[in-house]
C-alpha cells in the first residue's frame, strides 16, 4: 500500500517536473529568439528543412482532402438540392479546420520527428554540453531558428494546403460531378469572410509553436526522461512520444482555439 502511494507520488512529481521543464524551455527559447544577434542563414536553413521539404506532402494530402470533401459535400448537399454551395462548404471546412490541422499533423510527422531526433542525438552525444561549455547558448543556436522557421512555415504551408484543397474540390465537383463552374467560386466569394481566414491563420501559428516546442523540448531533455531506455533507444522512444503528444495537443488545442475564436 505504502509502495503504491510512493510510486504515485514519484510519478506525479515527475510529471509536474516535466511540465515545469518544458515551460522553462519555452521561455528560454522565446527569449533567445527575440534577443540579438539575429542570424539569417540558420533560419533559412530551418525553413528549408521544416517548410520547403514539407511542400510535397502538403500538396499531396491537400489535393486528396479537397477531393474527398468535394465528393462527400456533393453527396450531402444534393440531398437538399444545394449543390451550388459546394464551393463554400469545401472552402470553409478547409480554411477553418482541416487546413491548419492537417498541415500541422503532416509537419509533425515529417519535421517534428526529425527535430526531436536531431536534438536528442545532440544531447546524448554531449554536443549540447559542448555548446554550453563554449558559452554558446543551445537555445539560441539550436532551438531558436527552428521556432522561427515553424512560425513562418506553418501558416504558409496551411495556405498552400487550403489552395490546393479548394482546387481538388473544384476538380471533383466541377470536373467530375458537373457542378456549375461559376457557382463553385462565386458561392465561395460570398460566404468566406475575413474572420474565417483569420481563425485559420491564428490556428496555424499556434500549431507551429506547439509542434516545435513539444518536439524540440522532448529531444532536449531526453537524458532526463524516465523509462524510455538509453542512447539510441531513448531517442527513438522519446521521438515517438513527441509525435504522439504533439498530434494529440494539436487536436486538443484546435478545439479550444475554435471555442475561443468563434
Amino acid at each position: 500500500m505504502i509502495r503504491f502511494f510512493e510510486k504515485l507520488g514519484a510519478d506525479v512529481l515527475y510529471q509536474v517536473n516535466q511540465i515545469g521543464r518544458m515551460g522553462i524551455f519555452l521561455f528560454y527559447s522565446v527569449v533567445s529568439m527575440l534577443m540579438p544577434p539575429y542570424k539569417v542563414f540558420p533560419v533559412v536553413k530551418q525553413i528549408y528543412h521544416i517548410g520547403a521539404r514539407s511542400v510535397f506532402v502538403i500538396l499531396f494530402t491537400g489535393v486528396f482532402t479537397g477531393m474527398v470533401l468535394g465528393l462527400q459535400g456533393y453527396n450531402t448537399l444534393s440531398k437538399f438540392g444545394a449543390e451550388g454551395l459546394l464551393g463554400t462548404a469545401v472552402a470553409l471546412s478547409l480554411i477553418r479546420e482541416l487546413g491548419p490541422v492537417m498541415a500541422a499533423l503532416m509537419v509533425t510527422g515529417r519535421a517534428g520527428s526529425a527535430i526531436c531526433a536531431e536534438i536528442g542525438i545532440m544531447r546524448i552525444s554531449e554536443q549540447i554540453d559542448a555548446l554550453e561549455c563554449m558559452a554558446i547558448d543551445p537555445h539560441k543556436y539550436v532551438v531558436a531558428p527552428k521556432f522561427i522557421a515553424g512560425i513562418v512555415s506553418l501558416p504558409l504551408l496551411t495556405a498552400l494546403f487550403n489552395v490546393i484543397g479548394i482546387l481538388g474540390g473544384y476538380a471533383v465537383g466541377v470536373g467530375l460531378l458537373g457542378i456549375n463552374e461559376g457557382a463553385y467560386f462565386s458561392s465561395m466569394y460570398n460566404d468566406v469572410e475575413f474572420g474565417d481566414i483569420y481563425m485559420g491563420f491564428v490556428k496555424s501559428l499556434c500549431f507551429g509553436v506547439l509542434i516545435i516546442w513539444i518536439c524540440s523540448s522532448k529531444g532536449y531533455y531526453v537524458h532526463l526522461t524516465k523509462g524510455g531506455g538509453f542512447g539510441a533507444e531513448g531517442v527513438s522512444s522519446v521521438t515517438t512520444n513527441a509525435v504522439v503528444m504533439s498530434s494529440v495537443c494539436i487536436l486538443l488545442f484546435d478545439y479550444f482555439l475554435t471555442s475561443v475564436l468563434l
Binding site: Y28, I121, M122, S125, E126, Q127, D129, A130, E132, C133, M134, A135, D137
Partner: peptide, 22 residues
Amino acid sequence: KRELRAIRAGFGVLFQNAALFD
C-alpha cells in the same frame, strides 16, 4: 545563465568522447 556563460567564455574544453558536432 548569464553568469555561467561569462565564466565559460574563458573555457576551452575537450570531452572524453570529443563531442564534435557530427
